[in-house]
Simulated scan of single mutants.
Amino acid sequence: MVRKAVLPVAGFGSRMLPASKSIPKEMLPIVDRPAIEYVVKEAVRAGIKEIILVSHSAKTAIEDYFDTQFELEQQLAEKGKNDLLAEVQNILPADVSVISVRQHRALGLGHAVACAAPVVGNEPFAVLLPDVLVDCEGMAEDLTMMVENYLSSGAAQIMVEEVPAERVDQYGIVALQGTVPAPGQSAAMTAVVEKPAVEEAPSRLSVVGRYVLPGEIMEILARTAPGAGNEIQLTDAIATLLEHAPVEAYAMQGRTFDCGNKAGYLQAIFHFAARHPELGEQVRAMMAAELG
Rank of each mutant, 00 (worst) to 15 (best):
E199Q: 03
E199A: 03
E200K: 05
A201H: 02
A201N: 04
R204A: 09
V207E: 13
V208D: 10
V208M: 10
G209P: 12
V212Y: 06
V212D: 14
V212W: 07
G215I: 07
E216T: 14
I217V: 11
M218K: 09
M218E: 14
E219R: 14
E219A: 11
E219H: 09
E219K: 15
L221K: 04
L221G: 10
L221M: 05
A222F: 03
A222M: 06
A222H: 10
A222L: 06
R223E: 11
R223N: 08
T224I: 05
P226T: 01
G227C: 07
G227P: 15
G227D: 10
A228M: 09
N230L: 03
N230E: 09
I232D: 09
Q233P: 02
T235E: 13
A239P: 02
L242R: 03
L242G: 02
E243N: 04
H244N: 07
H244I: 00
A245Q: 09
P246W: 00
P246M: 00
V247F: 01
E248D: 08
E248V: 00
Y250R: 03
M252D: 05
Q253M: 04
G254L: 03
R255C: 02
R255Q: 05
R255E: 02
R255M: 05
T256E: 02
F257Q: 00
F257N: 01
D258S: 04
C259H: 03
G264A: 05
G264T: 06
Y265A: 08
L266V: 14
A268S: 11
I269W: 15
F270K: 14
A273N: 15
A273P: 15
A274N: 13
P277F: 11
P277C: 13
